[in-house]
C-alpha cells in the first residue's frame, strides 16, 4: 500500500499573478521562514546560539518551531555532511514543500571544510541539494547566520515565482517528485550483506 506523496508545488496561477500580489506574496514569504535545523556538528551549536535570547533570529522572521520538514520553508544545514548521512539530507529536503530555501551554514557544509580530504565526508551539501546562501566560517558566529538570512530575504524579495524561474534556480533538482515509497524505504544495505 503506497500512497503517493506529491511534493506540494507552486500553482500555475502564480505566474499570472499581478505584480502587487507577487509583492505581497514575497513579503509574506520573506518574513515567515519556518526553519528546519539540520543540525549535524559544531555549527548546530552556533545555530542554537542564534536562536537564543542574545541573537534571537525570530526578530528577523525566522521561526524555529517547524515540527518537521513537511512544514518548513528553510533548511539550515549546519555541520559536516558525511556520506552516510547524505541520503537522509536528500530525503528530508525532498519532503519540504515548495518554495523552499537552503542555507549552508559553515565550512563543512559549504565544501567539506576542514574535513574535505576525508574519505567519508561529502564535499559540500550543494552536491545533494541546491543551496541558496553560503555562510562562511568555522563555525560562523551567530551574527553571520543572521546576515545570511538577510541575504536570503533579499533574494526572496526579488523572486519571480514562476515555474520557469523556479526551474532555473533549482536546476536539475526541479520537477523531481519524491514518492511515498522513496521517503519510507529502508536504508540500503551495504554490499556484503546483500550477497
Amino acid at each position: 500500500m503506497t500512497t503517493d506523496l506529491p511534493m506540494p508545488r507552486v500553482g500555475a496561477g502564480q505566474a499570472a499573478a499581478p505584480k502587487p500580489m507577487r509583492l505581497v506574496l514575497n513579503w509574506g514569504r520573506r518574513y515567515s521562514l519556518w526553519v528546519f535545523n539540520f543540525g549535524l556538528a559544531c555549527c548546530a551549536i552556533e545555530f542554537i546560539a542564534a536562536s537564543m535570547a542574545r541573537h534571537d533570529f525570530i526578530r528577523l522572521g525566522v521561526i524555529p518551531f517547524a515540527p518537521g520538514p513537511r512544514q518548513a520553508d528553510l533548511m539550515v544545514v549546519s555541520g559536516t555532511v558525511t556520506d552516510k548521512m547524505a541520503p537522509a539530507v536528500r530525503r528530508l529536503y525532498d519532503q519540504m514543500p515548495e518554495p523552499k530555501y537552503v542555507i549552508s551554514f559553515g565550512a563543512c557544509s559549504n565544501s567539506g571544510g576542514p574535513y574535505w580530504d576525508s574519505y567519508c565526508v561529502t564535499k559540500g551539501v550543494d552536491q545533494l541539494i541546491p543551496v541558496d546562501v553560503y555562510v562562511p566560517g568555522c563555525p560562523p558566529r551567530p551574527e553571520a547566520l543572521l546576515q545570511g538570512i538577510l541575504v536570503l530575504q533579499q533574494q526572496i524579495a526579488q523572486e519571480k515565482l514562476q515555474t520557469k524561474s523556479l526551474r532555473g534556480r533549482l536546476g536539475p533538482y526541479a520537477g523531481r517528485r519524491a514518492s511515498a515509497a522513496e521517503v519510507s524505504r529502508p536504508l540500503v544495505a551495504p554490499p556484503e550483506q546483500t550477497t
Binding site: 552516510k84 537522509a88 576542514p114 574535513y115 580530504d117 576525508s118 567519508c120
Partner: peptide, 26 residues
C-alpha cells in the same frame, strides 16, 4: 553510530603537529 564519522584520525596522519591541534578541536 557512524553518521558523523569524519575520519579525523586518518586526517591526523597527513598533518603536522601544529595542524593536528587545530583539527583536534573539532
Amino acid at each position: 553510530v557512524g553518521y558523523m564519522h569524519r575520519g579525523a584520525e586518518k586526517l591526523f596522519e597527513v598533518r603536522d603537529y601544529r595542524q593536528i591541534l587545530v583539527l583536534a578541536n573539532r
